[in-house]
C-alpha cells in the first residue's frame, strides 16, 4: 500500500480533488472553531429584518424570524459533521468487523450472523427511530447534545448493517479466489489470510461504501428534521435548515436564498466526499500498485 504522503500528494495533484479536500478541511475547521465565533443564537430573532435577501449586512440573507442565515449555516456545520462522522465510525468499526467475521468464518457462523443482520434490516427504520426515542425518554442520553444523544444511538443501531453486508459479500468472493485458497493451503492461519490478504483488497469497497453511507446519514438527519424528530432547536443542522427552506417554498414568492445556501452546503460537502473518496480508492487499490 502507498505511503500516506504519496496518497496526499496524489489528492492534491488533481485540481477537482484538491478543491474537495480543501472544502472538507474548511468545514471541519469551521466546526471546530464554531463555539468561539460570535454567532447569533437561535432565539435572537429580529422581526424587522425577517426574510431579507442577501446583502452586505446579511451575506446569505435572513430567515422568517430575521435570523442571519450565514451564522446558522456555520452553526449547522458542527452537528451535521458530527452526524456524518458518527455514521462513518459505526460503519467502519461495527460494520467492517462484523462483515469480516461473518464472511471469513465458517458457513454456520456466517449463516447465523447474517440472519441477525437480516432481522435488524427487516424492521422499518422510522418505526425503530420513534420508538427508540420514546424508550430512551428521561435518560441522560436524551437530553445530551440537543437530542443528539438519541440520534447517535440510532445511527449505531442502524448504519452498520449495509457495510457489514457489503464487506461480508466481498470477503466471501475474495476468500474463494485462487490466491486466498493457495495461502490457506500453504498453511497460513485463516485469521492472517483474512486480515493481511483479504482486508487490503476490501479497502476500495469500504471507501466507496463509506462515501455512500455518510450522505445517507446526513439525509437521514434531514429526514428526521422533516418529521420534527431531528435535532431540536437551539441546535441547528443543515437538515433543519433544509426543512425550514422547504417550509417556506410557496407558489407566491420564493425566498431563494433559504433553499440555495443550505442545499449548496450539503451538496458541496457530499460532492467533495465523493471526489476525495474516489481518488483515495484509486490510490489505495492494491491492484493498481
Amino acid at each position: 500500500m502507498k505511503r500516506p504522503k504519496a496518497v496526499f500528494s496524489a489528492i492534491l495533484s488533481d485540481p477537482v480533488t484538491a478543491l474537495g479536500f480543501v472544502w472538507l478541511t474548511a468545514i471541519s475547521l469551521t466546526a471546530l472553531v464554531m463555539p468561539l465565533l460570535p454567532l447569533q443564537l437561535s432565539y435572537e430573532t429580529d422581526s424587522s429584518v425577517a426574510l431579507t435577501a442577501p446583502s452586505s449586512e446579511h451575506w446569505f440573507g435572513t430567515d422568517a424570524l430575521g435570523r442571519d442565515l450565514f451564522s446558522r449555516i456555520l452553526r449547522g456545520t458542527q452537528i451535521s459533521l458530527a452526524c456524518g462522522i458518527a455514521g462513518a465510525l459505526t460503519a467502519l468499526i461495527l460494520g467492517v468487523g462484523y462483515g469480516l467475521v461473518s464472511g471469513g468464518g465458517s458457513e454456520r457462523r456466517d449463516h447465523w450472523l447474517m440472519r441477525f443482520v437480516d432481522l435488524i434490516d427487516s424492521i422499518p427504520l422510522v418505526f425503530l427511530v420513534i420508538l427508540i426515542a420514546s424508550a430512551l425518554r428521561g435518560t441522560a442520553l436524551e437530553a445530551s447534545g440537543g437530542g443528539l444523544g438519541v440520534f447517535f444511538v440510532i445511527l449505531g443501531v442502524v448504519y452498520w448493517t449495509p457495510m457489514a453486508r457489503v464487506v461480508r459479500g466481498e470477503t466471501r468472493v475474495l476468500a474463494r479466489r485462487e490466491w486466498a485458497l493457495a495461502a490457506t493451503a500453504l498453511g497460513v492461519p485463516p485469521q492472517r489470510v483474512l486480515y493481511r490478504e483479504i482486508l487490503p483488497n476490501l479497502v476500495p469497497t469500504i471507501i466507496v461504501t463509506i462515501t455512500l453511507i455518510v450522505p445517507r446519514v446526513l439525509l437521514f438527519e434531514a429526514f428526521l428534521s422533516f418529521l420534527g424528530l431531528g435535532v431540536q432547536s437551539p441546535a441547528v443542522s443543515w437538515g433543519t435548515l433544509a426543512r425550514d427552506a422547504f417550509e417556506v417554498l410557496n407558489p407566491v414568492k420564493t425566498a431563494w436564498w433559504l433553499i440555495l445556501y443550505p442545499s449548496l452546503a450539503l451538496a458541496f460537502t457530499l460532492l467533495a466526499l465523493n471526489v476525495v473518496g474516489d481518488q483515495l480508492r484509486r490510490e489505495l487499490d492494491p491492484k493498481q500498485r
Partner: peptide, 16 residues
C-alpha cells in the same frame, strides 16, 4: 448528478 441525487433531501427536491 449522482452526488446531487443523493445529497439533497428528498423534500427539497420535491418542493423545487
Amino acid at each position: 448528478f449522482a452526488s446531487m441525487g443523493i445529497s439533497l433531501p428528498l423534500y427539497v427536491i420535491a418542493g423545487l
